[in-house]
Design a protein around this nucleic acid. Structure first.
Lengths: 221, 221
DNA sequence: AGTTCAAAAATTATCTATAATTTCACACGA
DNA sequence: TCGTGTGAAATTATAGATAATTTTTGAACT
């Protein structure tokens, strides 16, 4: 693991990001710098820097003098992230397509299979993210890719909030259609499918803290 | 000015961002925390937080233990930003269009006129940014808008690097075409024009530090 | 019971000090 | 001349201490 090379602030921000995404920390809850510092056995200076990174990723909200809290989200933000992903992933795919090799498409197919076999959301999400990253990375546009990464983090958060425990296996036809179009060199068809794919918003009833049930929404692609 | 309400870190990051964008600090040059701290009469703790913000905006690059330097850029990044802006501004405009009022379009027209009258790049850039912000803000998608803001900052930087001094007045036909389409309720036509508009990359010979001339590129829209 | 206010506690933001690492200059040897 | 190593200086990263602000608590009052 490369975390030894990272600065403490980076290590903390990664760990906190993971907890926020997985839902281990509730949306809206406060992040107290001294508590975090104590947990990680550091002073609060690197903790504050970690907070700034989380803020930039949209995972936390900071108000001056009033601390940092985990960002909360609603259906509107799910839609927003879905549309941004559609726009940017389509752009990335158009640029990546000319550089895609048979070997990359092979790995992407394996990722799809791994997703189909996943018994829990977490491993499904990982396989899904791998698929998207594989076919988009060759675009060689670092700023675009890092923006997409942040959007994937947000997506994962929505997903885990809705499908924390129950998860039923389903085969991803979209991924297969995208791969097939790419193999045939039909970039536009692949891009169109991808654009639709990441805008598909799933819906699921979940129990709230107060015991009632409401609908949760998430991007399932 | 609301800067009194901001935290020191925010004040510093805004000021440094301004200098980086305007070209007052050279791309690639180091930002030394103690020097900045001394200049702003603070300790380096808020300075480090400011650095994290600049990093997130893509204006600075930080390497662990090796400090922070102003991000450098090349034609590839100009193109990347232009394409991202095209994708995201078109998305924003589609959502904003239904909420645009005659009053907003009127202000946007004034901004266009102000741009046409500008004698220097800086005021042209400000007018241009105002135009884009006016017609996009009503989309009510905060994450999207803040990503677009960061891209505009990058665009401005490219622009100032190329047109630092000489700037010739030119009337912006694209802006007028966009406004006219919006007034007629023809959102798709407006979006298409906007998408082309922000991808128009201008070219200009500039003198390098070594006295030679090379071509500089920038987004002019 | 509900409000209001003030003091106490907790928390954020910043400063000063220290440890760890990197950069730089300069000498030395191939 | 060029590379290479070594020590000093500069710089980054973190810790510990302090000031300023916000939140909480609880008592007095309506």
């Amino acid at each position: 693991m490369a975390s030894t090379e990272d600065t403490i602030a980076v290590r903390i921000s990664k760990e906190l990001a993971d907890r926020i995404i997985s839902g281990a920390i509730e949306p809206g809850s406060r992040l107290r710098q001294d508590h975090v510092a104590e947990e990680f056995n550091t002073s609060h200076v690197p903790v504050r820097e970690a907070f700034r990174r989380l803020e930039a990723q949209g995972l936390a909200i900071s108000e001056p003098r009033r601390g940092v809290r985990v960002a909360s989200f609603d259906l509107g933000e799910v839609r927003e992230v879905a549309e941004m992903r559609a726009a940017l992933e389509v752009l990335a795919l158009r640029h990546a397509a000319p550089h895609l090799t048979a070997s990359i498409l092979e790995k992407a197919e394996e990722a799809t299979k791994a997703g189909d076999k996943s018994r829990d959301v977490r491993s499904w999400e990982e396989a899904n993210r791998t698929f998207h990253r594989l076919i988009l990375s060759p675009c060689n546009m670092p700023r675009l890719l890092s923006t997409i990464d942040d959007l994937h983090a947000a997506s994962a958060r929505f997903l885990f909030a809705a499908w924390r425990s129950e998860w039923e296996t389903r085969t991803d036809q979209d991924h297969r259609a995208i791969l097939s179009a790419l193999r045939q060199g039909n970039t536009e068809s692949a891009a169109a499918t991808l654009g639709r794919h990441v805008q598909w918003i799933g819906q699921k009833p979940v129990k709230t803290a107060s015991g009632k049930t409401r609908d949760a929404f998430a991007i399932v692609g």
